[in-house]
Computed example of a mutant assay.
Amino acid sequence: MHLQPALLLLLSALTTASNLPSPQHIFSNPPSDTPTRRIPSVHESAVQARRILHLETLGTLSTIFPSAHSAEHRPSDVSGAPIGLMDYFGDCEPRTGKGNPTILAISIATSFKNVAAGSNITLSLRWHPPSHRPVSAAALPRFSLVGYLEELSAAEVQDQRVVACFVKYHPDAVAWLPGNRIHESKWVRLVVQEVYWIGGFGDRAYIGWIPLDEWQSVTEHEIDDIRLPGENTHSWGA
Rank of each mutant, 00 (worst) to 15 (best):
16 T>G: 03
16 T>L: 05
16 T>D: 12
17 A>T: 04
19 N>L: 09
21 P>Q: 07
23 P>S: 06
24 Q>C: 02
25 H>T: 09
26 I>A: 07
26 I>V: 12
27 F>M: 12
28 S>C: 06
28 S>D: 08
29 N>Y: 01
30 P>N: 01
32 S>C: 00
33 D>S: 11
35 P>C: 08
35 P>S: 11
35 P>F: 01
37 R>G: 06
37 R>E: 13
38 R>C: 06
38 R>F: 08
39 I>T: 12
40 P>D: 06
40 P>W: 10
41 S>G: 10
41 S>A: 07
42 V>Q: 08
43 H>P: 14
43 H>N: 07
47 V>E: 15
50 R>E: 14
50 R>W: 15
50 R>Y: 15
50 R>F: 15
50 R>A: 12
50 R>Q: 14
51 R>K: 15
51 R>W: 15
52 I>S: 10
53 L>K: 07
54 H>W: 14
55 L>M: 13
56 E>W: 09
57 T>E: 12
58 L>N: 07
58 L>D: 07
59 G>C: 02
59 G>M: 01
59 G>Q: 04
61 L>M: 07
61 L>R: 00
62 S>Y: 03
62 S>L: 06
64 I>T: 15
64 I>C: 15
66 P>N: 00
68 A>V: 00
70 S>C: 05
70 S>F: 01
71 A>E: 15
72 E>R: 14
73 H>A: 14
73 H>V: 09
74 R>M: 13
74 R>C: 12
75 P>A: 14
76 S>T: 11
77 D>Q: 12
77 D>F: 02
78 V>E: 13
79 S>V: 01
80 G>M: 06
80 G>N: 03
81 A>N: 08
83 I>E: 02
84 G>E: 04
84 G>P: 08
85 L>N: 03
85 L>C: 03
85 L>E: 06
86 M>H: 01
87 D>I: 04
89 F>Y: 15
92 C>G: 12
92 C>I: 05
94 P>K: 10
95 R>K: 12
95 R>Y: 11
97 G>L: 05
97 G>S: 11
99 G>M: 13
100 N>T: 04
101 P>I: 11
102 T>R: 04
103 I>R: 02
